[in-house]
Design a protein around this nucleic acid. Structure first.
Length: 742
DNA sequence: GAGTTTGAAACT
DNA sequence: CAGTTTCAAACTC
């Protein structure tokens, strides 16, 4: 089973990739108690997760044992017991059930079974859960890669998927090699690739507190190397290639304790890389509830795709055991085999999680209701294609963190405290479509008021999915923000802000958040065509000048259809056109290349030039001048540089002038108030001017009386004026109302 | 601000 | 796949 695409896992942030508590089991057959028993060197695995701090993280291996399925960990004075790992070889399920499972737990499954997929894939599941909690990893047979049969599992290099579920309270950088090393102690295979899927449940002092599940690593059942994985990540395509005979893979995480749970799921990219996450929160002593989420999160372009579970293309299902199981409507996006969905529970919130240094945006789906809604599965829409795949959305509080876009230009936002009960605009449990995200999501102020769960706004019609631009998630995040490093439960505002204000990708929160996005001016496309930059970037139109805009939540259905149409035409329509190579590097090129004819590729008409990259061999441009040695390009660049320098100089000059003016006022203000050295307008009052004029007229009259020549008279007047000025100046600093006496 | 140019997207 | 049309951004005046 591929929980997370290995390619993308490589790019996952260390915070997520970190797995201090990793259980490795080379090839523990489910039927081999001895092997499983060998693979549990430690029973307690307090997995440091996020903000919590654990002194000594330990590896929990008891989940792989069939004889002693119980795993107990103590964190913060809270003892957690993880159930045994159960395997359903028929459908390749891995079930982690606590010994003290809840009454609703599946008792038909023998605890303590390890998990090995037929394709040789393994799930390393560490569980530090609460009593009664069950975790089910259900793996499809898609792994049925050639030569990946179960019988060959030991002979071939295998990919391990380590799923850690525990009370890790702090995410510390842990090298994968460490995990491998730890695994080697209990593993007989040394050449296995290790990918970790971490579901870290955060222990809480209070049993009702939130629990976080983070799945960070997935195993590549193709045995892809890290290098190949990276390349696939760049391609950004996620294709689900589940064979018709491949049974669905499901991961079911059941939490007996009602609490917040979040899951960080790295996107999937490669075919047959499927992400299924099921998280169910359950109230103690309540019937076990589960949520089955056919969640195939793929990184398609900038999308999260969920493969539809059909007879011909088995879906990889994130299922949370729920009673009763109900089918869930899905929406096919990007081809018949793909479903772009984002299943949400009845009352869910979407929160964007930003991890410093991460190239991904993480979206956390959070049920709005903190309390457990026992037996409340919400409404479920039935899709003919999904009838065979029952899906029950947990109404309990569940959090899922899903990286949805590459954070090439990751934006940070200042989060706001998450309310414990987010506003939910929809009352139906519907799968939602996470739509193409934008490389640079913008915060749209007019949506910042949307409370948590707004992404579930009505208007989806019969479509069970919400098209959710990443920027919109960001917007939601402003209202409801949960950080990966947040402590258990809803994070406190202080903690949130501290987390959010961390510089990210060189962008401060304010910088990234304040960056305006150019509004579109679409008129005829309804902003539902790729003509519209907003739509093409996976953003809602906000503060645009468009007319008849359908690129908003109010037209969710139309928008979803438009997205589907675009993906039908071009599955990579929402994929970034510019490669992810670092700026200035040769690999940063236009994916399709331009087709310029007249602009010489030296105007913004050219997408290459607009992206500040040079045209490449993929371009079909005519008369291209946008190449390295192009004199025109160099000239243009020089002009641009010169212009930039000019602008900078002008800016500096303006700044300096403003500073000087400000300084002048600063220095003169005290004089004004004190009366000494006041500005002229403060003491050359009307009265003073009139007095001065009278003095001058008086002087003129005297000159006439003594019959002085005009020149002498003028001189006398000027001299008098000089005396007046001297008196004005001398009196300015003495009294508020200087007197002028001739 | 109106009109033109341009090239990507959409369409046939 | 190629040619044409549509569209909105870029550009010019």
């Amino acid at each position: 089973m591929d929980v997370v695409s290995p390619e993308l896992n490589i790019l996952l942030p260390d915070e997520i990739m970190d797995t201090e508590a990793i259980v490795m089991d080379d090839d523990p057959p489910a039927e081999s108690p001895a092997a499983s028993g060998q693979s549990q060197p430690s029973d307690d695995a307090p997995i440091p997760m996020e903000t919590d701090v654990l002194a000594v993280p330990e590896i929990v291996t008891s989940t792989l044992t069939s004889t002693t399925p119980k795993t107990t960990t103590s964190l913060g004075g809270v003892s957690l017991t993880s159930g045994g790992l159960q395997k359903l070889s028929a459908n390749h399920q891995i079930i982690l059930n606590k010994v003290a499972s809840s009454p609703g737990a599946d008792t038909t499954r023998s605890p303590g079974t390890t998990t090995i997929t037929p394709g040789g894939q393994k799930f390393m599941v560490t569980a530090i859960g609460k009593s009664g909690q069950s975790i089910v990893l259900q793996l499809p047979h898609t792994g049925s890669k050639p030569g990946s049969g179960q019988g060959e599992a030991k002979a071939n290099p295998q990919h391990f998927k380590v799923l850690t579920i525990g009370g890790r309270t702090d995410l510390k950088p842990v090298m994968v090699g460490q995990a491998v090393s730890s695994a080697s102690q209990i593993s007989t295979l040394q050449a296995q690739q290790l990918k970790t899927v971490q579901i870290a449940k955060k222990t809480q002092v209070s049993s009702a507190g939130p629990i976080k599940f983070i799945i960070t690593k997935a195993v590549n059942n193709k045995g892809l190397t890290a290098q190949t994985s990276v390349s696939n990540v760049i391609t950004g395509r996620v294709l689900s290639t589940s064979s018709p005979v491949t049974p669905p893979r499901t991961i079911t995480l059941s939490e007996t304790l009602s609490s917040n749970s979040k899951i960080a799921i790295s996107p999937l990219k490669s075919p047959s890389k499927l992400t299924m996450v099921s998280v169910a929160s359950q109230v103690p002593n309540s019937p076990q509830k589960s949520v089955s989420l056919p969640l195939n999160m793929a990184h398609l372009g900038q999308q999260i795709l969920v493969q539809q579970s059909t007879a011909t293309s088995p879906a990889k299902v994130v299922s949370i055991n729920h009673q009763p199981m109900k089918p869930v409507q899905t929406v096919t996006v990007g081809g018949p085999q793909f479903k772009t969905i984002f299943p949400l529970s009845t009352s869910s919130n979407v929160q964007q999680i930003q991890v410093p240094g991460s190239r991904f945006h993480y979206v956390r789906l959070v049920t709005a209701t903190t309390g457990s809604s026992t037996g409340q599965a919400g409404s479920h829409c039935t899709n003919s294609s999904m009838t065979a795949k029952p899906m029950v959305v947990n109404t309990a509080q569940v959090r899922m963190s899903v990286p949805i876009i590459p954070a090439q230009t990751m934006k940070q936002v200042v989060p706001k405290p998450l309310t414990s009960s987010g506003q939910v605009l929809t009352t139906q449990t519907q799968q939602r479509l996470i739509m193409p995200a934008t490389p640079l999501p913008q915060i749209q102020p007019n949506l910042t008021n949307l409370p948590p769960g707004t992404m579930l706004a009505p208007g989806s019609g019969n479509m069970g999915y919400t098209v959710l631009p990443a920027h919109y998630v960001t917007q939601l995040q402003q209202s409801a923000y949960v950080t990966l490093a947040s402590s258990s439960g809803f994070p406190t505002p202080t903690g949130i802000q501290t987390q959010a204000r961390l510089p990210l990708n060189g962008l401060s929160t304010s910088d990234a958040a304040s960056r305006p996005r150019k509004p579109c001016n679409c008129n005829k496309s309804q902003c539902l065509k790729l003509y519209c930059d907003c739509f093409a970037n996976g953003e809602f139109c906000q503060s645009c000048n468009c007319t008849n805009c359908f690129n908003n939540l109010e037209h969710e259905t139309e928008r979803a259809k438009a997205i589907k149409a675009c993906l039908d035409r071009n599955p990579e329509a929402f994929k970034p056109k510019i490669g992810k190579g670092k700026e200035g590097e040769s690999d940063r090129r236009h994916s399709k290349g331009c087709n310029c004819k007249r602009s010489g590729c030296l105007k913004n008409y050219c997408e290459c030039y607009e992206a500040k990259i040079m045209c490449s061999s993929t371009c079909k441009c005519v008369g291209c001048k946008n190449f390295e040695e192009s004199p025109e390009r160099k000239t243009l660049m020089h002009l641009a540089d010169a212009a930039e320098v000019r602008v900078q100089q002008q800016t500096a000059a303006k700044t300096k002038l403003s500073s000087q003016i400000s300084d002048l006022f600063t220095r003169t203000t005290p004089a004004i108030t004190s009366g000494g050295g006041r500005m002229p307008f403060t003491f050359v009052t009307k009265e003073v001017a009139e007095a001065t004029c009278e003095c001058l007229l008086e002087q003129a009259e005297q000159a006439e009386l003594i019959q002085q020549p005009q020149a002498t008279a003028e001189r006398m007047i000027l001299e008098e004026f000089g005396r007046c000025l001297m008196r004005i100046i001398s009196s300015a600093g003495k009294t508020d109302c200087p007197s002028i006496n001739c």
